[in-house]
Computed example of a mutant assay.
Amino acid sequence: MTPDILCIGSVLWDIIGRSPSSMRQGADVPGRITRLPGGVAMNIAMTLARFGLCPAILTAVGRDAEGDELIAACARMGLITDHAYRSDDLPTDRYMAVEGANGLIAAVADAHSLEAAGDKILRPLADGRLGTAEAPWPGPIALDGNLTEALLSEIAISPLFAAADLRVAPASPGKAERLLPLMRHPRATLYVNLEEANLLTRGHADTAAAAAEAMLARGAARVLVTNGGKACAEGTQGAGVLTDAPPPVMVARVTGAGDTFMAAHLVAERNGAGRAAALHAAVTAAAIYVSGEIGS
């Protein structure tokens, strides 16, 4: 089966503790702990599948029990896992977060196996299964910042990505600067939050619109900046910046909201929406996700 889009990056188990209470450092409160398939690439792929697309994931998954279970979960959701790199000696990655009524309290991402696998996850793009250097993959690629800076630097100049519509998201503010090699890529659209945008520009913008302007000034071809429940922005080189505010909702969850935003925007554009309509579709989908109305 030929995929509609490739999702490259982290596919792992999300272990999320959620409490309806506001929390502070050291809090010990009742709540629920869930384990779900997650990771930036996985969250994007799951959302794309909900919208009717057929995504393939390029990632590293261990040949352990957790990895087999994760691959089976992907298959049940209609995701193509044939091209995932399965390692005999690397364990399946995990992410752990604690969320309260006041948002994300803390998170730890263990994506060491993905980082250790390196460019092995890209082999299907070079060996003819999904493309070659002479005939590169021509469709959309969702790329996540859990890859190492060295690999992202390689991707920025690789002929394997020369024809792709690159959609790029950092894994977290702590990894945002890994995307610097892709800032000036002519075919890249960067999806970042306000903190990540400021890290990439070394700026102090206090609105998404100002951050988008700063990224365009730094040479980004196209960027979307989110800012929680405040106005988001989309900026395109030579075409200026648009803004849209998400509808107010009660926050039931946070992890995965940015990935939902990115996937919804991509799908809207694939369906022919213009800049303003695609941005509106993305902020609306993210708000619905945060409210808990869409299943994980």
Rank of each mutant, 00 (worst) to 15 (best):
V40S: 14
P37D: 08
S19C: 14
I15M: 12
A268W: 02
A169N: 13
E115F: 02
I8H: 00
T284D: 15
L48G: 01
R184P: 01
E66Q: 13
Y289R: 02
G295T: 13
C74N: 07
F161M: 12
H112I: 04
T236I: 12
A116T: 15
L152C: 09
I288F: 03
D14F: 01
T47W: 02
T236P: 00
L58I: 04
E99G: 10
C7D: 04
M215W: 01
P248H: 11
A277S: 13
H112V: 06
P159F: 02
D244T: 05
A239H: 12
G145S: 12
V223M: 11
T132Q: 08
V108T: 12
D93T: 04
A176T: 08
A285W: 00
G31M: 09
I294D: 14
P124V: 05
E177H: 09
A142E: 02
G26R: 05
A107E: 02
A239C: 09
K175V: 07
L53W: 05
C74W: 02
A135R: 14
I141F: 05
A276W: 04
M215G: 03
A73E: 13
S87K: 10
P140M: 09
S113H: 05
H204G: 04
T236R: 15
G272N: 11
T59P: 02
H185V: 03
T148I: 10
T34D: 14
L6C: 09
S87D: 10
M77R: 15
D4M: 11
I5L: 13
A273W: 01
G219I: 02
I80D: 14
P248T: 11
C54W: 09
G139I: 04
V223K: 00
A126Q: 07
V241L: 03
A84P: 03
E177Q: 14
A205M: 09
A264S: 12
P159M: 07
A84T: 14
R222Q: 15
L114K: 08
